[in-house]
Simulated assay, not measured.
Amino acid sequence: MEAPAGKAACSKHIVLVHGACHGGWSWYKVATRLRSAGHRVSTPDLAASGVDPRPLREVPTFRDYSKPLLDLLESLPAEEKVVLVGHSLGGVSIALASELFPEKVAAAVFVTAFMPDHSSPPSYVLEKFVEGRTAEDWMDTEFKPQDPDGKLPISFLFGPLVTRAKLYQLCSPEDLTLGRSLMRVSSMFEDDLRLQQPYSEARYGSVRKVFIVCKDDLAIDEGFQRWMIENYPVDKVMEIDGADHLALFSTPAELASCLTDIAEKYA
């Protein structure tokens, strides 16, 4: 898509990384606004997500899951830096990408996303999140083993009740229908992430970070978002009122405005 006249000079490359069970499609409202503002936007599908053809059983590790993002960064020209944006579980993917390619990341932006620190294994924030949840919180989310030996990661899929009540509660009925139609089975890869070394202060820790708090998120609630920021302070905190977990759908104009401001400041 061509940039509007006069805006090419301020064009930034913004990479939008989806959360679990979703795909690059989930950024359609935000990506459209950013492109209309003249920015270059990439919305990769992570492995076994979106239109990626692989089934989850062919994606045994979190690095395998994140590989499409890692391949994208590896393919960039040496001098190019991107604004890397992760939503929900996508936060762990952009943290891994920042660890491996810190020189290619102008800023890492966590949109109500899981944000690892550089002193604990990357599973730590997921474990803390799960610790504070009851069976009632997960509602009809389905967790299933993929194989009898337990060698593959546990799969999960959001059910229709939790999707409507805690993920998309402020979204339009059309976006709820879209989400339910396109969701795929995913995993949190906790066991694999527990085996990984902490992302390093020298690499991941050197990347500038912004956290966007979605104040009406009922899935990763504001309290837990604030805990992650306290656990691992960032360069800037932004807030969006009226944003549920899928701020990508419920408050796309506000989210695109935040990302534009971040791109102008850091890229």
Rank of each mutant, 00 (worst) to 15 (best):
G50M: 11
R226H: 12
R180M: 14
C10Q: 15
D149R: 15
A108Q: 03
G223V: 09
H22V: 03
I229E: 11
G19Q: 08
L76C: 02
Y28E: 08
Q196E: 15
T260G: 14
E230I: 09
T260K: 14
L84G: 02
A3T: 08
L73I: 10
L70D: 05
R133M: 14
A263F: 05
Y65L: 05
V105K: 01
G19R: 01
Y65C: 03
R40E: 12
H39L: 06
P116Y: 05
R208D: 10
C258E: 11
M1Q: 12
F158Q: 09
E80K: 13
S200E: 09
L170P: 00
V17G: 01
F249I: 01
V41S: 03
S11P: 04
F156K: 03
V15E: 01
S36H: 13
P55R: 13
D241G: 12
Q196C: 13
H87V: 06
F110T: 00
L170Y: 08
D221N: 14
K67C: 05
A3N: 08
G159C: 11
Y266Q: 10
F189K: 01
Y168R: 07
R208K: 15
A108R: 02
S250E: 05
A31M: 07
P252R: 04
R40F: 12
E230N: 13
L248H: 12
L34I: 09
G159S: 07
R164A: 14
V237S: 08
S36E: 15
R208M: 08
E222Q: 14
L73Q: 04
M1V: 13
D175H: 05
I212Y: 04
V59N: 06
K128V: 12
H18A: 08
